[in-house]
Design a protein around this nucleic acid. Structure first.
Lengths: 186, 186
DNA sequence: GTCTATATCCAGATAGAC
DNA sequence: GTCTATCTGGATATAGAC
């Protein structure tokens, strides 16, 4: 399938380094098929995106519901970033590709921004869950998501540097900072 | 100067999208000069790296010395990531390019790993400073550096989403998690 | 050291046959 | 829908003149 071949190649070699011919060949087609279906590389990228996001979000949402403590929720987040439910490791590499792409293409940037806003809100809900429902906490969604991203990056250059314990402790630190911040300014 | 032109173009367009011809032209030279001096694009990239790292590290080191509280140190870190001392914003974009590059080239990956280990140690020292010198804290260097990276990325897709207050609060949260962790297991 | 060719290759995209 | 040309542009890299 063209989309799967594209996901593999994008994650392995990078978006720019993956030619349409190579993608088509990996799927047993020729470039013409790609142009007919997606209009080009960019169209392929967006269609691919659409598929992934829903999958990952669904899995994370379920795990957030099942977890009972804040620590469990943070551990679940980290687990899903470290070992994504689908496509063993391709996700973050692709996400990274997308990110870099988006910083140079404004339409892609806004696309990404919209997507991340959803993630931030979901994360804030995960932090707030179990606490005082009426408390006005600091929104730390971007910090939690950013930390997840950053931890995964550090792990990629040196896997031993990021233990699960450290990752969860750091996530808890940020989550609790949101609550402490509440206490500080009543 | 060729190195400066390369830094600009790499950060603006990305490494792959920056042709040697374009780099040379931006510096008022032709491609031949690049090949004679650096052997190609990769050589240029590494030479460029060498220069940058020292500059940024030196500035951060000074600010770490001048700050007296943990919060000041964390705020200084964030400030330098948000607005690097040199080259207004090119640093992180370039760093990101490098990262992506390194995830596919093993020599580059180890180069990066060595460099980051230094950053992690420096960050741990910044967290430990002012506390009990003998206390065995959790090493959170990778988490702090990762968080800085992640915050900058979130800010890049949506600048309003990451306020300075939130960034510093999150950094403090991770830093304090290292200390709390100490208290938990004596 | 630096330039001006130039060789070689591969990219994205399209038109038209099947 | 998918393939097979094919056009056009731009990339790396080198050889040799200045």
């Amino acid at each position: 399938m063209l989309l799967e071949a594209a996901a593999d190649l994008f994650a392995e070699r990078g978006i720019e380094a993956s030619s349409i011919d190579a993608i088509a060949a990996a799927a047993g087609r020729t470039s013409g098929a790609v142009y007919d279906h997606f209009g080009g590389k960019e169209g392929l990228l967006y269609d691919l995106l659409q598929e992934w996001v829903d999958d990952v979000a669904a899995v994370v949402a379920v795990e957030m519901m099942e977890a009972t403590t804040l620590e469990e929720r943070m551990a679940a987040l980290w687990r899903n970033v470290k070992q994504p439910p689908k496509g063993g490791g391709r996700w973050m590499a692709l996400e990274h590709e997308l990110w870099r792409y988006a910083t140079r293409d404004d339409a892609a940037r806004q696309h990404l921004a919209r997507r991340y806003r959803v993630a931030w809100e979901g994360t804030d809900a995960a932090v707030a869950a179990g606490g005082d429902p009426g408390a006005a906490r600091m929104a730390v969604g971007p910090a939690i998501v950013g930390l997840l991203f950053g931890l995964e990056m550090m792990r990629r250059v040196d896997p031993a540097a990021v233990t699960d314990d450290m990752a969860v402790a750091a996530l808890m630190g940020v989550a609790l900072a949101a609550r402490h911040h509440d206490r500080a300014q009543p």
